[in-house]
């Protein structure tokens, strides 16, 4: 009886969510070669992935990105949310919309816009160099390109995270602030003891989204690759690596393997953060 109700959901769930994962697992057990065709190789692909320096270097790169960019982005977002929530800001509505606006720009377009600005010849950086007679470092050089991507991603997602924090702050009962004020708490004390604990779960959720987003970094480096082909390699991030494996090398089986390994790593890290973040809450 129950299946009649659950059936449609289970069918869609199985077909759309489970089947692809199952099929990726299935694919990862084979190897398709130009000479010799497809053969079953068991876990060989996994062994190869675990020893693949190109994969681990890409992972280390997004790991570094995660450790630097996410705190900066969430810190700025939190600061803006608290500022708007404090009610002391002039032109609050305008400010809120302005900070959120970049989020409405598709990532591909944002990367293109920033790519043009980063140009040292015909871009904004080039114009500044010409106008002021200085030589700014090239944002698309191998040593700076990760920071430049971080800047784009921060620009894109500060508004989004700000909105999450701000909406969480909005539902904090005002009476708590009044009680804190009666107890003699200043504005900073209110933030530290009332506001932050109250939006703790939002902070954790935003962090998890950002972790997953960092590990899935693809659009921005993929677009900038055209402008900086030697700084952004085909294995710059794990996602970019699976893409090149699949489309340039026709190594679909190995690409599926790398994707699964990456998915497991992301899930483990995101879950750990969630457990730790929620423990005291």
């Amino acid at each position: 009886m129950g299946w009649g109700f659950a059936g449609p959901f289970v069918a869609v769930f199985g077909l759309v969510l489970l089947a692809p994962i199952g099929y990726a697992l299935y694919l990862s057990l084979f190897k398709d070669r130009l000479i010799g065709g497809t053969s079953f190789v068991g876990l060989e692909n996994y062994g190869e992935a675990l020893a693949d320096t190109r994969f681990w270097e890409g992972l280390a790169r997004v790991g570094l990105f995660l450790l630097v960019q996410v705190p900066v982005m969430l810190g700025v977002a939190l600061l803006v949310a608290l500022a708007i929530d404090s009610g002391r800001l002039y032109g609050r509505t305008f400010f809120r919309v302005a900070v959120f606006l970049p989020y409405a720009v598709p990532a591909v377009v944002a990367s293109l816009i920033w790519g043009f600005m980063y140009g040292t010849r015909f871009g904004l950086v080039g114009n500044i160099n010409d106008a002021l007679g200085v030589t700014l470092p090239d944002p698309l050089s191998p040593s700076l390109v990760l920071a430049s991507i971080g800047n784009i991603v921060t620009w894109e997602f500060v508004g989004y995270n700000m909105l999450i924090f701000y909406s969480a702050l909005k539902v904090v009962p005002r009476s708590l602030y009044e009680a804190a004020a009666i107890d003699g708490a200043g504005e900073w004390r209110v933030i530290a003891s009332v506001k932050l604990p109250a939006i703790r779960s939002s902070l954790v959720i935003a962090t998890i989204f950002s972790i997953i987003g960092s590990f899935q970094l693809f659009n921005e480096p993929s677009i900038l690759q055209k402008l900086a082909p030697n700084a952004i390699t085909s294995d710059f991030t794990p996602n970019l690596y699976t893409y090149s494996l699949s489309f340039a090398g026709q190594q679909h089986n190995y690409a599926a393997t790398v994707a699964i390994v990456m998915g497991v790593i992301t899930a483990v890290i995101a879950y750990t953060v969630q457990l730790r973040g929620m423990r005291k809450g």
Partner: peptide, 27 residues
């Protein structure tokens, strides 16, 4: 591939996987 919400993220992820699989399947 930074996506907006967990739902669209997952959906798009699924689409990506499906298309990747479709490619793999034919291969």
């Amino acid at each position: 591939m930074r996506m907006r919400t967990p739902v669209t993220r997952r959906l798009l992820g699924a689409v990506a996987v499906v298309s990747a699989l479709a490619l793999g399947a034919t291969a």
